[in-house]
């Protein structure tokens, strides 16, 4: 795997190079952002193959539209916006993802399954499974805006201003979406022992 060969260059510099036709600069943007891009797509799809296809498609679109990138936002928030749009569209076309895929199915690359903790009893494991099932179902049932805000904050650790940038909305709106999402998820655990 190549390391970032131009670590001193900012994303904006690389984008400017791409816009001048230096394609190699885009490869470096891919190197820098592919892990996060893939992870975001995985958060939305819970499927390793679909996450790969959608995140790669986002890079292809970003590359083909690089001349339209005006630098008003950071390159990565622009890229994330493309990914989220693709994921939402994919979700809309294929319907809901089953809760069973909350943890995804391991790809063929040798990823290990989560080990059970030594202290966990069958009861505790069953409970953890029930909690995850409920949360997964509740997450899938959230309106897209709430789900997007929640995944970007909870799973990806983006700040409220960054999410507002990705969703092109106000920080206040993101706060409201995030709060509603968390409240709905918490509500889904009602009645658990």
């Amino acid at each position: 795997m190549e390391k970032d060969p131009l670590p001193d260059l900012r994303d904006e510099d690389l984008v400017a190079m791409c816009q001048r036709g230096e394609r190699r600069a885009f490869d470096i943007l891919v190197l820098r952002h592919m892990r996060r891009a893939y992870q975001i797509a995985f958060d939305f799809t819970h499927d390793y193959e679909e996450a790969k296809d959608l995140s790669q498609e986002a890079f292809l679109r970003a590359f083909s539209q690089i001349n339209r990138f005006d630098g008003r936002s950071a390159f990565y928030t622009w890229l994330y916006r493309i990914i989220v749009n693709l994921c939402l569209d994919h979700h809309r076309r294929r319907g809901r993802f089953p809760w069973q895929r909350l943890n995804g199915e391991a790809p063929q690359t040798g990823e290990e399954r989560e080990p059970a903790t030594a202290a966990s009893t069958p009861d505790q494991e069953a409970m953890a499974g029930e909690v995850k099932q409920r949360l997964g179902t509740a997450l899938e049932g959230l309106p897209k805006s709430q789900r997007t805000a929640f995944l970007l904050r909870n799973h990806e650790g983006l700040s409220i201003p960054e999410i507002a940038n990705v969703m092109q909305t106000t920080e206040g709106t993101v706060r409201v979406h995030l709060h509603r999402a968390v409240a709905a998820l918490r509500q889904s655990l009602t009645g658990l022992a």
């Binding site: 995985f42 790809p107 040798g110 990823e111 989560e114 953890a128 995850k132 968390v182 998820l185």
Partner: peptide
């Protein structure tokens, strides 16, 4: 419950 939901996946270099 919120940390339960966010577990970043680790992948081998390959």
């Amino acid at each position: 419950f919120l940390p339960l939901m966010a577990k970043p996946k680790e992948f081998p270099q390959s």
